[in-house]
Nucleic acid binder design. Structure first.
Lengths: 210, 210, 210, 210
DNA sequence: TATGAATGAGATTTCATTCAT
DNA sequence: CATGAATGAAATCTCATTCAT
């Protein structure tokens, strides 16, 4: 009876994607509040009511977008092995560049999503638990791994990681606030921030020592 | 006729303040969208319509709150002389600690304001022009002053300043996103970020050199 | 400040009445569900939103109609003295005739209200507490008074009262169900039911005895 | 072609019953309006659309429930011979007790059905013609039979019957309105109402006379 | 016949803004 | 200027019903 019908499941997923893509488009264009269900429906080429066959309500559409982001992020974040291969310089550089590239591509959507995540407690919780916290945890792991190999002095891994993430989210924030400098000079920005943190954390010297 | 009547002006300003204070309270409590004009009016002890004698519309109330923030910020930011007196370490430390203290006090209001600034183009522009850009400019000045006295190597003032600000706004962002680590360990965070940046920018060594 | 302004209060009450009257008209015509807020607003000559300045929601409009019924009923039900003056025959006769007359006048509204009272728990409770229970209580008092003066045998006041009320509400029910016999022959019905109950309760004989 | 295929008919009837039973369950639980076709379909274990192969629409489902009630009632109401066997006291007592028992069992369903019968003209008509009127007719027959054998004075059979039915429907109504007295003391209620009516109609005395 | 996804009309409700007093 | 009742546009969401598979 309730045996998973693969064909139907595929259709359902396709329809979900179709609606979510439309939602992403519309949210990016108008922001969460000015985007209406009608807009999304029209963009997706379905009737208003159809959306409610796939999502509980408008908030739930946004929530699914956020969760999707989390999944995409997950895939990219099996960086755990990277620690073994990459030097801190390479890793930091990669992370910064990576984020800056993402940001450039998705600024309008980012502008629509973050205000909502900040404003809506449920969204906030989902975002925190599925994206933020796991990344913090990985960050601490990575940093700890470096700390074990080099001498990082008395810097506290947790604080350093939150400091690094504050640079990343600060970049996002500044971009959302209309600051174009970082985006226009993203390569230089990435390189110099990498350099500052490496030297600031004595990771360049110790590197040389090894 | 429309000659500026100082008494009326004072009354008008007082009433404006009264409404803005109420708005700040209500926005902080409910966020921009869930806060109604009725809420603000009741909190301010005036009638709904009265608000429209002092502000064009709801958005304009928020806009005035942002502009007020700019003024408050201005006062505090005659740090220009500070460069003469304070070492980079002192200055950086002060700025970080200062911002973290502000953030702790005003998190709910911050949560209400930033989503709106990000979402609303007009608000965004005002914020950028009256707060962000001036602060960038000052930052570059300050950093330039240090650069003239010490050797900062090949670091680009503009990028470093945007980097520093990204830490500040990233902290705000993380706090709004529900990350409590930074707030709970704000002193350690401030100290370590100061240390990282000082060393990262070779400002500690050069200091000693002088 | 919040001192009751009699003029405003009067206007408010008038507007409330205006809306309630419109609601009564529309509910009577279409029933609760098919009556829309728009219908009521148009009939009352106000905008849709205005209704929400006076009532929390559609259900609340109905609730106020029921409560108004309770008040009207109250006024009429200072029958307590009646016991002193009227014989049981006169009292029973009056009650039956009275109810039948009311019913004839208000059948369409009755048809709209009772289904809702039965269906909606909140409405049900209000109706029960403000109308039904008080009437039961009065009924028992009255019946007790008669019992004290005459010999009623072993009949239980509570049961007799609920029995009498079941005749009244049964009449309402039959009328709502489309039975026109009772309404068409209401006088004969009232008289005969009075006679049956009087004799059935031995109230006619004891009367003669006195 | 459209010749009645007995097998198909049986299957069809079974499916109908299955859906109607589900509908009864759901209506009893949620009431007519809050019960959705989806609810009924799920409860019946069929698809939404299937319901429309057996019933014209949602209203028609309810209509069939009412008609089914009529059939059930019919079976029970071959009381015609009963008149020959039972004394008026026994008959009245049986009817009252019977109805009270039914009521106790089916209060939730009753609560769902009657509001709809009252509200919906088509349902109303069906109910009246298939249930109410036939019962009135039978009642008059029965009462006439007793009248022929005893002296009932000047009481009009039609009025007395409607009076008796008003007690029955009044009991239903009071129960739906939340009055629990009758249900809690149903036996005493039945007995006393029987006694009142018997004596009120001089049926007890005449009985003894015979 | 069975399915159940798609439909879209329609209803409730909110709330920024206006304006007569 | 202050008031606050009235406005009505606009948005979300529900759900009976249809129809292609």
């Amino acid at each position: 009876m309730t045996a998973t019908n693969p064909i139907k499941d595929a259709v359902t997923q396709a329809r979900q994607r179709q609606i979510l893509e439309a939602a992403v488009t519309v949210f990016a264009e108008k922001g969460y509040h000015r985007a209406t269900i009608k807009d999304i429906a029209r963009t997706a080429g379905v009737a208003d009511g159809t959306i409610y066959n796939y999502f509980k309500n408008k908030q739930d559409v946004m929530l699914n977008i956020v969760q999707q982001m989390a999944e995409v992020d997950q895939l990219m974040e099996n960086v755990e092995q990277a620690v073994q291969i990459l030097t801190p310089a390479q890793l930091l550089g990669m992370v910064f560049q990576n984020r800056l590239r993402m940001l450039k591509k998705n600024l309008p959507l980012t502008r629509a999503i973050f205000p909502q995540i900040i404003t809506d407690p449920e969204l906030n919780q989902i975002f925190f638990e599925t994206i933020l916290q796991p990344n913090f945890d990985k960050g601490v792991q990575v940093f700890q791994a470096y700390a074990d190999r080099h001498q990082l002095g008395d810097t506290d891994p947790e604080i350093v990681v939150h400091g690094l993430f504050s640079v990343i989210f600060g970049t996002i924030m500044l971009a959302m606030l209309g600051d174009t400098v970082i985006l226009n000079r993203s390569e230089a920005f990435g390189e110099q921030m990498t350099a500052i943190f490496l030297h600031g954390l004595h990771l360049d010297q110790t590197e040389r020592d090894q």
